[in-house]
Design a protein around this nucleic acid. Structure first.
Lengths: 142, 142
DNA sequence: TCAAAAATAAGAATCATTCTTGTTTTTAAG
DNA sequence: CTTAAAAACAAGAATGATTCTTATTTTTGA
């Protein structure tokens, strides 16, 4: 859906590309997604519009994986799991952490929790693989 | 202190440089730290030895700040606060999170929580500055 | 209608990191 | 003590994501 602000067609397309997927893409992926629809878009425009959208709070960074920054169209606070084998990023459903605390004068604006591990696809390359001593169940209160 | 393994002088120096500080340095800082003592060390050697030490579990990555990866000689799980103005990284004391959970077959090896905000030095540029609606007090159970 | 502001394309510049090549040092066996 | 293989290394090239620059096009508002 569009924002209140009057966005250019290209900016809308960048934003929509991120919102359309759960893969938490990087700039290159977004560019390749938008390119067929708007063939004269440049990678620089993608970067610039990611930046604008982040400044407006419409996109959030999830972190850097393999030297590439990854983004999320869901800006409500939640957590992520990153597979250290394939680099995929998944949402983690769990109780939202409490309000932002402060420590020794450090004013917290935001927090990010990331779980690192091996995704089902990567660890399940052998059927019935049970390594890593994983626990099963829902996350607690973080 | 030295490790069981027989490390080269340069590798020891890289490891020691990270361990000697609380600033959670990047490769360049480490290089500049070691260079005066071992003038014929190269930046490539710093990178390679960071990598080796990480593989051996002697160093950990804290994350990427301003496009630079930052490291920590304290590998026991703990959390960090990153100042979005100056890029400084501080340790956060708080209750250690519970054991690693699993989600839909994702085997968690490790988790990382980072608090983003403005450090006392940056926010305190005016005495008595009280912006950012900060709370004061210790962190809860995360 | 027109001037200023915003958005853009194209490609150069930056810069952290990795890789390559050839050399030096260490190790271990004989 | 040799010596050959392995490990560590320096120097600098290569890579690749991101940012910056410049000139152009589009949008906006008076």
């Amino acid at each position: 859906m569009s924002q209140a602000r009057n966005y250019s067609k290209k900016r809308e397309a960048v934003l929509e590309a991120v919102r359309s997927t759960k893969c938490h893409p990087g700039a290159r992926w977004i560019y390749e997604q938008v390119k067929p629809k708007l063939p004269d878009i440049s990678l620089g425009t993608v970067y610039r519009n990611i930046k604008v959208c982040r400044e407006e709070g419409l996109l959030a960074s999830v972190g850097v994986v393999n030297n590439e920054e990854r983004f999320d169209g869901i800006v409500e606070p939640h957590q992520h799991a990153i597979c250290t084998k394939c680099g995929s990023i998944m949402d983690v459903e769990s109780a939202a952490p409490a309000g932002q605390p402060s420590l020794n004068g450090f004013a917290v604006d935001n927090r990010r929790t990331v779980f690192y591990g091996v995704c089902a696809k990567c660890s399940g390359q052998k059927k019935g693989f049970k390594g890593f001593g994983r626990l099963v169940g829902r996350f607690g209160k973080n």
